[in-house]
């Protein structure tokens, strides 16, 4: 028997990736079950329905597909307010940032996300240095070229005096093996997919209550019309599986999938797992202040009050950390 409503869900990751296995595929199944088979969410991995990752955001807005899982970082300048959570040393862990994002959405992102039915905005557990050479102090970073996941990541690297480049995840292995880059900012969870355990040797976190540098924000969104045409009871099925209802659980999932990733990284005896001491951590934090002012300047042009957003975001993360 075919479902009353078939929703096409497209994303850029392959089905074997952790977010696909532990979040998207189970979510699709859950919707099917909760709707008693009246909704079928059909996942299409690795852009099987056409286009490249940066096009996902328009695909869901225009109804090319019904649901996408993507990153605002792919399309710089389109959701500038979301970036506040990606600034260095704003993030603490996946749970508090994901919870904070839900409230922040209601207060600050309504305009920015008005073209989409947002199911969830969430964050990963946080990026650290994964490098071919040891990083124990700021000077160790000089002369390296590292990969950041978006423009904020690149600005952060530049603020520490290292060359930063932004490239898609999939290109990390070839660039590392060719020496184009000497490392990347990444969380553990995704690092096996790009063979960081083979290609780098030093996994470095920071001291204090923010051991990771920053996070990346993901958006899980539905087409507005696809949502609107569902009857009330099926709308409720979607609602019960989005936003506040799943935020904490999703945050926990992302913290959890760090473990298997870390295990793979630790499987090679050549690999070192270091913590930069408090004094050096503070130097890095001080240097990265430049990123904040750079971001304030950039978003000011779009009429965004950066400092106010930042203090709100920090307050929310504080609130949900307890």
């Amino acid at each position: 028997i075919s479902a009353e409503f078939t929703l096409r869900m497209q994303t850029f990751i392959p089905p074997v990736a952790n977010p696909a296995k532990h979040f998207l595929a189970p979510w699709a199944k859950k919707i099917g079950k909760a709707s008693k088979g009246r909704i079928e969410v059909k996942p299409f991995w690795a852009m099987a329905l056409g286009g490249k990752a940066p096009q996902l955001i328009d695909q869901v807005r225009d109804g090319v597909v019904d649901i996408v899982w993507t990153l605002p970082g792919f399309t710089a300048g389109r959701m500038p307010r979301v970036e506040v959570f990606e600034l260095p040393f704003v993030h603490r862990d996946a749970v508090s940032t994901t919870m904070a994002l839900q409230e922040f959405r209601e207060t600050h992102l309504v305009e920015e996300m008005k073209d989409y039915h947002v199911l969830l905005a969430h964050a990963h557990a946080g990026a650290m240095f994964m490098t071919t050479r040891p990083v124990m102090k700021m000077e160790d970073l000089k002369g390296m070229t590292l990969r950041g996941h978006n423009r904020i990541g690149v600005w952060f690297l530049q603020s520490l005096g290292t060359a930063g480049i932004a490239t898609p995840l999939g290109r990390i292995p070839s660039m590392l093996s060719k020496g184009v880059i000497q490392g990347s900012l990444l969380p553990f969870e995704i690092s096996p997919a790009v063979k960081m355990h083979e290609l780098t040797s030093y996994f470095t976190q920071l001291s204090g209550d923010q051991k990771r540098i920053s996070t990346a924000v993901f958006t899980f969104m539905m087409n507005k019309k696809s949502y609107a045409k569902l009857p009330p009871d099926l709308k409720k099925v979607i609602d019960d599986n989005s936003g506040w209802h799943i935020a904490r659980k999703t945050g926990i999932t992302w913290e959890k999938i760090e473990k298997p990733g870390e295990k793979v990284m630790r499987s090679k005896s050549k690999n070192h797992f270091n913590t930069i001491n408090m004094a050096e951590t503070n130097r890095i934090k001080a240097a990265s202040k430049k990123v904040l002012s750079r971001w304030f300047e950039t978003v000011k042009k779009a009429g965004v009050d950066g400092p106010a957003l930042l203090s709100d975001a920090r307050g929310l993360i504080e609130k949900y950390s307890n």
Partner: peptide
């Protein structure tokens, strides 16, 4: 299969992104 509107939307940026490739 998908309808006219999805196709017209898809084609808006497809040419650009297909050629904009490292």
């Amino acid at each position: 299969i998908a309808g006219t509107v999805p196709l017209l939307s898809y084609l808006k940026t497809e040419t650009y992104w297909r050629f904009t490739s490292f």
